[in-house]
Amino acid sequence: KYLVLALYDYQEKSPREVTMKKGDILTLLNSTNKDWWKVEVNGRQGFVPAAYVKYL
């Protein structure tokens, strides 16, 4: 498993997404889509914009 760092705040806009705050450390679950990565944060799984996170 990889960890990624939230570069920006992101507010979920659909039930498939998750909210994150700048500085959050997220567990990367799937990065096959170049635009949306599946992550786990605070016990929830969902998608965030790939451009908003970077590998640690």
Rank of each mutant, 00 (worst) to 15 (best):
K1G: 12
Y2P: 14
Y2I: 15
Y2L: 14
Y2T: 14
L3C: 09
L3P: 05
V4M: 08
V4W: 08
L5F: 10
L5E: 15
L5Y: 12
A6L: 03
A6I: 02
A6D: 00
L7T: 06
L7Y: 05
L7M: 15
L7N: 04
Y8N: 10
D9K: 02
Y10P: 01
E12R: 12
E12H: 09
E12Q: 12
E12M: 12
K13T: 13
K13D: 07
S14V: 04
S14F: 06
S14L: 10
S14C: 07
S14N: 13
S14W: 06
S14A: 09
S14H: 14
P15H: 11
P15T: 09
P15K: 09
R16N: 15
R16Q: 12
E17Q: 12
E17T: 09
E17C: 06
E17P: 05
V18G: 02
V18S: 02
T19Y: 04
M20A: 02
M20Y: 02
M20I: 15
M20G: 00
M20F: 12
K21V: 10
K21G: 05
K21F: 11
G23K: 02
G23D: 06
D24T: 07
D24Q: 12
I25Y: 07
I25G: 01
L26V: 08
L26D: 00
L26A: 10
T27I: 15
T27E: 12
L28E: 00
L29K: 05
L29F: 04
N30M: 08
N30I: 08
N30P: 03
N30H: 08
S31T: 10
S31W: 14
S31L: 07
S31C: 10
T32A: 12
T32G: 12
K34E: 11
K34D: 10
K34Y: 08
K34N: 12
D35E: 14
D35K: 15
D35H: 15
W36H: 03
W36C: 06
W36Y: 09
W36N: 02
W36D: 01
W36P: 00
W37T: 05
W37S: 04
W37V: 11
W37C: 06
W37F: 10
W37P: 03
W37A: 05
K38L: 15
K38N: 07
K38T: 08
K38A: 11
K38W: 15
V39N: 00
V39D: 00
E40T: 07
E40F: 06
V41C: 09
V41Y: 12
V41P: 00
N42G: 13
G43K: 06
R44N: 09
R44H: 08
R44E: 06
R44F: 07
R44P: 01
Q45S: 11
Q45L: 09
Q45F: 08
Q45Y: 09
Q45N: 08
G46K: 02
F47W: 13
F47L: 08
F47A: 03
V48Y: 00
P49F: 02
P49S: 02
P49K: 03
P49V: 03
A50C: 06
A50L: 02
A51V: 11
Y52M: 13
Y52L: 13
Y52W: 06
Y52K: 08
Y52P: 00
V53I: 09
V53T: 04
Y55T: 15
Y55S: 12
Y55F: 15
Y55H: 13
L56D: 07
L56H: 12
L56E: 07
L56S: 07
L56C: 10
